[in-house]
Design a protein around this nucleic acid. Structure first.
Lengths: 209, 209
DNA sequence: CTTTTTATCAACCGTTTGGACGATGTGCGC
DNA sequence: GCGCACATCGTCCAAACGGTTGATAAAAAG
């Protein structure tokens, strides 16, 4: 009774690597590959329709046009197929987004082969997987209060990171300069900062861009 | 007569993938692997001492503690072993740095297997390899005049990206605010910009940070 | 239904910036 | 030695920004 897995990664090299790793492991069989989120969803659907639903999906995050977060959400919601996220970066937002999208596990690509295999088994059995690094990053986030910006504030911040002046932002968003300034003041206070350049700096540091 | 290759990448998954890809190709044999630049240099040296120098090195860039650029420079200078850089990102600075470090080829990880194999063969034979994307990025850089900042200007820019005010920069660099402002004006004109936030933005875009 | 959040605008005031001069000293290449 | 790039400092003024206060109104949350 082997675990039937779909590999999702935009790099052929990585897919080949995972395939090779899993071939040495009797419990796991790679039955399909996909190069982006859209293709992944199609594959999952295909197997579900055939009455042979997959046991697990190994998913990278950064892909285009459809990224791994969106694909994970669709897959878990519509097919209940467990997803293990295997990616390069461990930014807080990535992890949080993946978990919220329904990912059962989150692992980094530099993990040793045995760890990857163990994680796939765990995922197929419905158990959660979090590597120590990831857990640490999550703990970090729990400590400090979560910084949440409103939609409008995020728009302002995005334009700010472009180097736009208040007037330019006002024109592009069809609001007055006064309003822009008010939003900025709110952003500053939420970020614990007192000027625009610093706001962009800490926004980057906090991965809000 | 097969090509004897060393794989250098910090991700076991990627190494396994390349190994698997090359196993299906008779011309290429993977004789060693390394997880960082230091280990790579050791391996190259080991084979050279044994009188069986390697035919090519396939090298990732982002690794720690010793990154791929440094390793490439050392390997090409000291052992004349041809290096093919295989990485995820195609920023201008990365490419330029790799080529200047002596890399014979530069390829992206999302390249199809045949292309990777062809590149390895070319590298072992001393021929240059540049994927079209890479070439395009280089052309881009050639077009627009290279932006060079003086040391002091770079210091200012770095502090600027922190969100520092003119006064703070002046204090930290032990100069007057006037001087800071003068440097800023120069930076703006070099970057084709007219305010600090925009300066940071385009500096990031141009990879000057 | 009340409170909070969010988005909008205005007016005022002090500070910071950006821009446009000019000026001096130092090191480097030709 | 001459010119050039660089770093340093100064002044002056207009524009942009930041902080405050206050106000309205719709939407979300409680």
């Amino acid at each position: 009774m082997t675990i039937r897995v779909l590999l999702v990664d935009d790099h052929p090299v990585v897919r080949a690597g995972l395939r090779a790793m899993f071939e040495e492991f009797e419990n796991i069989t790679v039955v399909a590959e996909a190069a982006d989120g859209g293709a992944a969803l199609s594959e999952v659907a295909r197997f579900a329709e055939q009455g042979h639903p997959l046991d697990a999906v190994v998913m990278d995050l950064q892909m285009k046009p459809v990224d791994g977060i969106i694909a994970t959400r669709s897959i878990t919601e519509q097919f209940r197929t467990p997803v293990l996220v295997l990616t390069t970066f461990d930014t807080q937002t990535n992890i949080v987004a993946a978990v919220e999208a329904g990912a059962l596990g989150y692992l980094l690509k530099d993990a040793p082969p045995e760890q990857v295999q163990a994680a796939v088994v765990a995922t197929a059995e419905g158990r959660r997987t979090l590597s120590p690094d990831i857990a640490a990053t999550l703990m970090d986030r729990m400590h400090r209060p979560v910084i949440t910006l409103s939609q409008r504030e995020t728009e302002i911040l995005t334009l700010l990171a472009t180097g736009a002046t208040n007037r330019e932002m006002a024109q592009r968003l069809f609001i007055s300069e006064s309003t822009v300034k008010t939003h900025l003041v709110h952003i500053y206070s939420k970020l614990g900062v007192d000027n625009r350049t610093a706001a962009v700096a800490t926004a980057r540091a906090e991965n809000l861009l």
